Amino acid sequence: MKFRWCVIGAGGIADRRAIPAIIKDENFELAAIMDRTPAVAEKLGKKYKTKFYTNEETMLKETPCDGVYIGTPVALHVPQALTALKYGCNVLLEKPLAMNAAECDGLVSAFKRENKLLDAGYMMKYHNLHVKAKNLVQSGKIGQVNTARFFFSCWYPEIAGAWRQNKALGGGGSAMDLAVHCVELIEYVLGEEIAETKGFLANRTFSYEVEDTCVFLFRTKSGVIGSIEAGFNAPDGCGSKMEIYGTEGCVICSGTLGQEEKGSLSYLHVPFGGYDAMQNSAAPKPKRYYGAGGDLYLKQFRRFAALASRGENDYFYAERAAQVQRVLDGVYAEYR
């Protein structure tokens, strides 16, 4: 039997990434879609040859499904997820999970009470190079990890009606949209949580009501120190970086932060010791690995469907999403 998906918020990221991933898998069925804009709902219903609605509750009343994907503005996540839960649905909710950590915690608790699966749309951890980075770091291949750095940006000018530029709908700007991925990834790769942050938010380029620039330092529970730079005001061609440095080498991912499985990973291993006062020691050449070109959304959906089909309600990633939001709450609290 196919795993039946309903989609709430069928435009935007759902149309660009999520729905195309669902229809790639012969074991999935796109049971219905919903969008509050009638013209969008009808257009996408016809495009994907499925039932379409403008109200999520009506869709869920009339359409049996095994999982619900929600790709709407952040302010709608909690009420829409709870509506899906009311109809006994497992939910894959786009990131960030909610507007703040308290909302995240409440949502996770609600799904636990009803014994239904909840997961957050942090798909970048499924990138083959991020999995490689995690394995290298956690197996000690670069020794004791001491520092880390992220750079993640895009060009996002002022656009009329863009909900990510509306504080009431999105909760924040480049920190809420981009930096959250970096927080989730560093906790995934290191296998530990960020304990404290110090940073700055600013509107350097655009005049919308959320920040277009975010830079903050962090320290993990074990003492790793790092920085995250996330902005809506650097050209897309600037690329992205995730750098992790240890006592015996480093892992540097270039161009891997984003919606596609591309980019490269450079791994350098230098055995511990060998101090050279003249700094003439010849470092070995790094090993290079490349993105596998897979579909990150499809990987995420397959994991979710497998868990839901087996009745395995693993809340680890949902709880991590709440932890990520606690980190962001701290960044915003310092700024405000």
Results as ranks from 00 to 15, higher is better:
residue 4 R to L: 07
residue 10 A to K: 00
residue 11 G to N: 11
residue 12 G to C: 06
residue 14 A to K: 01
residue 15 D to Y: 02
residue 16 R to P: 06
residue 18 A to I: 11
residue 19 I to L: 08
residue 19 I to D: 08
residue 20 P to F: 06
residue 24 K to S: 15
residue 26 E to G: 13
residue 27 N to Y: 12
residue 28 F to I: 13
residue 28 F to E: 14
residue 33 I to D: 05
residue 34 M to L: 06
residue 34 M to D: 09
residue 35 D to F: 00
residue 35 D to C: 02
residue 35 D to L: 01
residue 36 R to Y: 14
residue 39 A to C: 12
residue 48 Y to C: 05
residue 49 K to S: 15
residue 50 T to Y: 04
residue 52 F to Y: 08
residue 54 T to M: 03
residue 56 E to V: 01
residue 57 E to H: 04
residue 57 E to Q: 08
residue 61 K to R: 07
residue 62 E to K: 01
residue 63 T to N: 01
residue 68 V to C: 08
residue 71 G to Y: 03
residue 71 G to K: 02
residue 73 P to D: 12
residue 76 L to C: 06
residue 77 H to Q: 06
residue 78 V to Q: 10
residue 78 V to I: 13
residue 83 T to C: 13
residue 83 T to F: 02
residue 85 L to F: 08
residue 87 Y to L: 07
residue 87 Y to K: 04
residue 88 G to I: 03
residue 89 C to R: 01
residue 89 C to V: 09
residue 96 P to W: 02
residue 97 L to H: 05
residue 98 A to Q: 04
residue 100 N to T: 12
residue 101 A to K: 05
residue 102 A to I: 12
residue 103 E to G: 02
residue 104 C to N: 04
residue 106 G to T: 07
residue 106 G to E: 07
residue 107 L to K: 01
residue 108 V to T: 10
residue 111 F to N: 10
residue 112 K to M: 12
residue 115 N to D: 14
residue 116 K to M: 07
residue 117 L to Q: 09
residue 123 M to T: 12
residue 127 H to P: 09
residue 133 A to G: 13
residue 133 A to P: 10
residue 136 L to C: 06
residue 137 V to H: 02
residue 138 Q to Y: 11
residue 141 K to H: 10
residue 142 I to R: 00
residue 144 Q to I: 12
residue 148 A to I: 09
residue 148 A to R: 00
residue 149 R to P: 05
residue 150 F to L: 03
residue 152 F to V: 15
residue 155 W to E: 15
residue 155 W to S: 12
residue 156 Y to H: 08
residue 161 G to E: 09
residue 161 G to N: 11
residue 163 W to V: 10
residue 164 R to P: 13
residue 165 Q to W: 09
residue 170 G to H: 05
residue 173 G to T: 07
residue 179 A to H: 08
residue 185 L to T: 05
residue 186 I to L: 05
residue 187 E to N: 04
residue 189 V to G: 00
residue 193 E to V: 04
residue 195 A to C: 08
residue 195 A to E: 14
residue 196 E to T: 15
residue 197 T to P: 06
residue 203 N to K: 05
residue 205 T to V: 15
residue 207 S to N: 15
residue 211 E to G: 08
residue 216 F to A: 08
residue 217 L to A: 10
residue 217 L to W: 14
residue 227 S to C: 11
residue 228 I to M: 07
residue 233 N to M: 15
residue 236 D to R: 10
residue 241 K to Y: 13
residue 242 M to P: 07
residue 244 I to P: 01
residue 245 Y to L: 06
residue 246 G to H: 00
residue 246 G to D: 06
residue 248 E to V: 00
residue 252 I to Q: 06
residue 254 S to C: 15
residue 265 L to F: 04
residue 266 S to M: 11
residue 267 Y to G: 13
residue 269 H to C: 07
residue 269 H to V: 05
residue 269 H to R: 09
residue 273 G to P: 01
residue 275 Y to T: 00
residue 276 D to T: 00
residue 279 Q to C: 13
residue 279 Q to N: 15
residue 280 N to F: 13
residue 283 A to P: 04
residue 284 P to K: 00
residue 286 P to N: 10
residue 286 P to M: 08
residue 288 R to E: 12
residue 293 G to H: 09
residue 295 D to I: 00
residue 295 D to M: 01
residue 296 L to K: 00
residue 298 L to A: 11
residue 302 R to A: 03
residue 303 R to H: 12
residue 307 L to G: 01
residue 308 A to K: 01
residue 311 G to H: 12
residue 312 E to Q: 15
residue 313 N to F: 14
residue 314 D to W: 03
residue 317 Y to N: 11
residue 318 A to F: 05
residue 320 R to C: 05
residue 335 Y to C: 07
residue 336 R to D: 14
